[in-house]
Simulated assay, not measured.
Amino acid sequence: MVSKPFTVNLSKPIVFQVGHLGEAYQKWVHQPIGSKDGPRFFANDFCELLTRTKWWVIPLVWTPVVCWLAFVSVQRGLTPTEAASAAVGGIFIWTLLEYCLHRFLFHVKTTSYWGNTLHYLLHGCHHKHPLDGLRLVFPPAATSILCVPVWTMFKVLATPSTAPALFGGALLGYVIYDCTHYYLHHGKPSKGYGQFLKRYHLNHHFKTENKGFGITSSIWDHVFGTFPATKVGAS
């Protein structure tokens, strides 16, 4: 007797269901649902609360940290100009991190129960429900975890005085990224670079999810050959 393929019930908490999709998960998660109302993730109210974040929380939480990191570099001997230059370098480094995280981590192929479950929490939910405004930016707790290896990298590669400002710049790049990402989904740029980025990103969601991994810029898609071959459609 052939068993029926597993079907996700969107009226019930969804996170612990998606793992059962197995190899069908990749196809399912890239068939977006256009509703602005996202599904419930967890039965537990506290866990559910942790998955929802207003966009303005990101600059509110992280901008003071960026300023403090720049101050630490000045306290350790950098001039304000040198600290600012290091921060600009950190922003540039972030654009590469943004691309690599999106391409190689957020779009990793999974088929196992826990692989599908973790991928859905990390990024799959955004592709399945791209208009869910409360699950578009990263919750600060999740960002804090991702900050650990990035900060460690800067400590190893940079001097003790430069590393904080460099990391602060990367963190500022992240803030710009998350706010830009929210705007591309919920804002209405009518012309110029903003309109290009919106069309470029929506093309990634609705046409070619394996291309166009840049959010704030398409530069690394050009460098690494993942710029969409087809014309980016209108939003």
Results as ranks from 00 to 15, higher is better:
G38M: 00
T143E: 03
H102K: 04
F46H: 07
K191Y: 13
G19L: 07
T95V: 05
Y120I: 04
S217W: 12
Y25F: 15
C67Y: 14
V29R: 12
Y25C: 05
P64W: 10
L101A: 13
E98V: 11
F227T: 14
P139N: 11
D132C: 03
L197G: 00
L202A: 10
G212N: 04
T110S: 03
A165E: 04
A70Y: 13
K231H: 13
S112W: 09
L49I: 05
F213N: 04
I176M: 10
S217T: 15
V156S: 06
W94T: 06
Y193P: 10
F227C: 09
N9L: 11
Y182P: 00
F6G: 04
Y177G: 01
P39L: 08
A24F: 01
C125Q: 09
F41Y: 15
N116R: 05
V66R: 09
T216M: 14
P164F: 13
W151Y: 14
G194L: 06
V61Q: 00
I145A: 07
I91Q: 12
E23F: 13
Y182L: 07
S235R: 13
P80D: 03
G169H: 12
F46C: 08
E48G: 03
W220E: 03
K4V: 13
Q195V: 08
G214W: 14
S112V: 06
H181F: 15
Y99A: 03
Y174I: 13
L172W: 14
K155F: 06
S3G: 06
P32I: 05
G212T: 06
L134T: 07
H222I: 13
V232I: 15
S11D: 08
T117S: 00
Y25E: 00
F213D: 01
F206R: 10
E98P: 07
T216S: 10
V65E: 05
W220P: 09
S73T: 11
H186G: 01
Q75S: 11
R135M: 11
I33R: 15
G194Q: 06
S218A: 15
I93T: 13
V223I: 15
C147G: 02
I145S: 00
L122T: 08
I93H: 08
L136T: 14
V29G: 02
I91Y: 11
K207Q: 13
A83S: 15
F46K: 12
S218H: 12
H127V: 02
A170M: 15
